[in-house]
Design a protein around this nucleic acid. Structure first.
Length: 433
RNA sequence: GGUAGGGUACCGAAGUGGUCAACCGGGGCAGACUGUAAAUCUGCUAGCUAUGCUUUCAGUGGUUCGAAUCCACUCCCUACCA
């Protein structure tokens, strides 16, 4: 993580310049407060899974910038509210989760956030709203908090209106009260004056700002991040096997790098701004590269994003492994960049394509191509592998496999290694041991 | 509690006794063209020891030579009424 060197720029200007800001309860007020010394802010995370994926990263990067500017992040896991399920942006109620699972998930998420934020004492903190929400007493809550919410107003919220047709229970309807209470509580107990969240959180955030003002007589601020879509309007962050995870057990570093390497041309500038820490003038320059040179910008995006999540060394390995397979976009370093990707030695010969080992005994037993595809994790089932071969998408090194009954033999290996490909991009190195 | 309408593959949505592993759209995968891009065109999209077999249309049981389709009960959702 870069060392926060005395930043003279207002955090808000950085966020705005890089495209992080969408809606804001009071931008001027927020700017003034942020330039008036360290401030505390919070962002909520939903502990319904045990790993973050790239769809969660936008708020994380924003938090990183704010921390970089000297402000203090609170990452709130909604252990209490997850027991309810936020109706925002959902067409139906979500399954309610058990406390144990939520706690496990919260731990895993904090571990991942730690790669982006500094959780050292006095720096970022992690809180679980279950700690205060489960102690609420119904009568007190209804009287003190419930009395401040107007039902007609709540009903007019977009998130509620879209559920009016399909149904919404009182449980979910109450969600904004609890999230608002979080903000109030964090302001009172921890002097937290800012809440950030996704676009779909706007209603909840505004409600929290108002509740806090009414209960504490203090102005607090809220802002939302834009909804990240690809240039073709589809959801960002999903790919072949679903989401792109930060957990290397679910998405390998190589695949993580490849995800960024393969984004649309049109999204490069935007993504460099969000998911790297390169200066914006460089971002704009790289993003406007044309024709094949744009590929260098994608390599840089891939390296930078991967380095943040998995470290410099891993990112370089992924970059080299991929570039060796597909070609280097700028082998001679013609395109100027401040990215540490420059340090990569394009002539070294490490082998970091994900590798699967098979034993000589497997071969002797008669290993078929279908079984190998499944074993390598390139196909979900034998039928899937059959389809791949029928469609002409399976290669052993550079030879297309046309026979689904092909039996793998030692002749397929060169120096004990053969590259198995499923389509152009998915590939595994098969190593004979 | 009453009445009515629903629950189909990753999502949306047809199908209302056989020709249904189930139209179509989205998504995804693969092929061609490319720049590991986009757009476009084409094919595929339950599993298997595979010209056949097995498991799928909320659940359980039943009718039938035969059911996603008919019947009974159960669970869940929605609307109106109370």
């Amino acid at each position: 993580m870069t060392t926060p060197s005395t930043p003279a720029v207002n955090a808000l200007d950085i966020l705005r310049d890089r495209g992080f800001l969408y809606q804001n309860t009071n931008e001027e007020g927020m700017r003034q407060r942020l330039s008036g010394g360290p401030a505390t802010f919070y962002v909520g995370f939903d502990p319904t899974g045990n790993s973050l994926h790239v769809g969660h990263l936008l708020p994380v990067m924003a938090m990183r910038w704010l921390q970089h500017c000297g402000h203090k992040p609170i990452a709130l896991v909604g252990g209490g509210t997850a027991m309810i399920g936020d109706p925002s942006g959902k067409t139906e109620a979500r399954p309610i989760m058990s406390v144990d699972i939520i706690d496990d998930n919260a731990r895993a998420i904090q571990g991942q956030l730690g790669r982006f934020l500094d959780f050292a004492p006095g720096k970022a903190t992690m809180v679980n709203n279950a700690d205060w929400l489960r102690d609420l007493r119904l009568i007190d809550f209804l009287r003190d908090i419930g009395s401040l919410f107007s039902v007609p107003r709540m009903l007019s919220a977009e998130s509620v209106r879209m559920r009016l047709e399909t149904g919404i229970s009182f449980l979910e309807f109450s969600y904004p009260l609890l999230q608002s209470f979080d903000f109030y509580y964090l302001c009172k107990e921890r002097q937290c004056q800012f809440q950030f969240g996704g676009q779909d959180q706007w209603g909840n955030i505004v409600a929290g700002v108002e509740l806090t003002r009414r209960l504490l007589g203090q102005e607090v601020f809220g802002a939302t991040f834009p909804l990240l879509l690809k240039s073709d309007g589809t959801k960002f962050g999903k790919t072949a096997g679903g989401a792109v995870w930060l957990d290397t057990a679910r998405t390998s570093v190589f695949d993580y790098y490849q995800f960024w390497r393969n984004v649309d041309d049109a999204d490069v500038t935007k993504l460099l701004g969000f998911f790297t820490t390169l200066p914006m003038d460089e971002v704009r320059r790289l993003g406007s590269l044309s024709a094949p040179a744009i590929n260098r910008a994608k390599e840089i995006l891939g390296y930078e994003a991967t380095a943040l999540a998995h470290g410099h060394d891993e990112a370089i390995k992924a970059f080299l492994a991929a570039a060796r397979e597909f070609g280097f976009a700028d082998p001679d370093g013609q395109i100027e960049t401040s990215s540490r990707i420059r340090e990569a030695d394009c002539t070294s010969a490490s082998e970091d394509i994900p590798t699967v080992e098979i034993s000589a005994a497997d071969l002797t037993a008669g290993l078929g191509i279908l079984a190998l595809l499944v074993k390598a994790g390139l196909c979900a089932s034998n039928s899937d592998a059959r389809r791949l071969i029928k469609g002409g998408g399976c290669y052993l090194d550079d030879d297309r496999v046309g026979d689904e009954k092909l039996v793998i033999s030692p002749e397929h290996f060169h120096a004990g290694i053969v590259t198995l490909r499923a389509g152009k991009k998915a590939r595994k190195r098969i190593k004979l041991v």
